[in-house]
């Protein structure tokens, strides 16, 4: 049954996708979770959700990915959207420079609402549109270094780097989590410091699952 397969994971991470409207967040998500891409996909209204499990080392890591409408940057969804997120892909469109300029604002909002340990990757999407490129790889790399985020260019259309972008983020989270229990002391909504994050049925706090976590 589907719901039993759902249980077969060792780690459960919440990852958010943010970025301006039309940069291709939903297509990145559908490419990663369903291997689908649509040139004619509708704009996202509010939030959309998807999950996918991948294997890191010998562990199953389940990603819960929250994809928000680009226009929701003014937080109609409430800051609860970010609550419990341990990873983020901040997406821009390599053919529209303004979407790259706005990355800074997205990062600020992200950092205002999440834990300092959050794993962030800057993603330049639509890299297949080479002739229309408006943001150079160097610029983006430099920016990512300054902001100490990971960086990758992707193409959801050509299925380029999509898998690796998500996998990289999830692996990095896994490294952080498996080395030390994620420190979430700054988050008032989170359980007391020092305790491994409790999943307790509530999955909007991503964390290590059940027995698997504490021994490692």
């Amino acid at each position: 049954m589907a719901y039993r397969a759902e249980d077969d994971y060792d780690y459960l991470f919440k990852v958010v996708l943010i970025g301006d409207s039309g940069v291709g967040k939903s297509n990145l998500l559908s490419r990663f979770t369903r291997n689908e891409f649509s040139l004619e996909s509708k704009s996202t209204i509010g939030v959309e959700f998807a999950t996918r499990s991948i294997r890191v080392d010998d562990k199953v890591v389940k990603a819960q990915i929250w994809d928000t409408a680009g226009q929701e940057r003014y937080r109609a969804i409430t800051s609860a959207y970010y609550r419990g997120a341990v990873g983020a892909l901040v997406v821009y469109d390599v053919t529209r420079h303004v979407t790259f300029e706005n990355v800074e604002r997205w990062l600020k909002e992200l950092r205002d609402h999440t834990d300092a340990n959050i794993v962030i990757m800057l993603v330049g999407n639509k890299a297949d549109l080479r002739h229309l490129r408006a943001v150079s790889v160097e610029d983006a790399k430099g920016f990512a270094e300054r902001e100490s985020t990971f960086f990758m260019e992707t193409s959801a259309l050509e299925s380029m780097n999509v898998e690796s972008a998500f996998t990289e983020v999830l692996t990095q989270i896994y490294r952080v989590v498996s080395k030390k229990a994620l420190d979430i002391g700054d988050d008032p909504a989170a359980p007391p410091r020092g305790q491994t994050i409790n999943v307790g049925g509530k999955d909007d706090v991503s964390a290590v699952k059940k027995s698997g976590c504490c021994s490692s």
Binding site: Y3, E6, F49, A50, T51, Q64, D203
Partner: peptide, 9 residues
């Protein structure tokens, strides 16, 4: 469904 995300999906 055991998780919020699966419910929302």
């Amino acid at each position: 469904s055991e998780h919020a995300t699966s419910c929302l999906v």
